[in-house]
Amino acid sequence: MRRFLARRLAHGAAVIFIAASLSFLLVHLAPGDPFSSTLDSAAISPSVKAAWRAAYGLDRPLLEQYLRFLGQLARGDLGPSLLQPGPASAALAGAVPNTLVLMGTALILSFVIGIGVGSWQAARAGSGGDRVAGNASLVVASLPEFWLGAVLLLVFALRFRVFPAGGVVDLVMHDSLSPAGRVLDRLRHLALPSLTLALLGSASIARYQRAALLDVLPQDFIRTARAKGVSDRLVLWRHALRNALVPTIVLLGLSLPTLLGGAVFVEQVFSWPGLGRLAAAAFHARDYQVVIGATIMGAVLVVAGGILADLLHAAVDPRVRAQ
């Protein structure tokens, strides 16, 4: 187990290193640089911009910049952000927790909804309810997240005003609320964006869970359980669900990159100050350090998610543990 973990970690580190190098190459090969990104900057003379580039080392050969970048990275330093004063790592430190909260909530919600609906369907496979739920999940899974987000926003924030339209907390009131009030404030702001992501994710998980359960149900040990007189419902919950959970948990690792991608759109729709919004702004401003940092953070999230899924898998499935 420990050796497995060590190998996965080494593998993950290699992956993150390659991702960082790729994003470094990508931003430096793109036209423009941090000092040419705005229309207004036309009024600043080329010689001044040249002086700025020199001051930030952007006039050095690409290889030299890359080596310096690697040196910094080894020390855990990304360098200064050119989009905002302060190190790039500070900008990321502000954004990553928001994205983690959003993704985490969405992930949990989508698995709860998805596994629930999928199991419900499997228990009455072939019935009218199963077909309706199956078609509904197929339609939901075909919706673009910016569309679903916009609809939820229009309905629940604008029309019925149940939830706020954007942001993480109330900009003025939050700090003066009681601890419980603060939690509630955060939950209210979290509701719509996480629900958008969760609904879309749960549709696929429901389909998957249903198929996985039906795969397991006719198997011998369930027949044995039934023969022993265990009730149908108990069979479903105790045995089948446990077995079907294994492939579903594998899915956890698979769905992280796409969930993060979806978060980019949802963060835009709900003005959620997370990694996606930060990255979009950084791309736009050619803020090299933050772009690279955001890519690395994205890769770290995905790799960590994969390792976590593997560990969970091992925890649930005794066969994996034995390996």
């Binding site: 390659i18 790729l22 994003s23 990508l26 980019v264 890769a299 995905v302």
Partner: peptide
């Protein structure tokens, strides 16, 4: 395959937005 793993670990949408913004 390590290269593919790295590419897969960057969310595609982030990569697309990066390229579409930069170019």
């Amino acid at each position: 395959m390590r290269v593919v793993d790295a590419l897969l670990s960057i969310p595609r949408v982030l990569l697309l937005i990066a390229v579409a913004t930069l170019w």
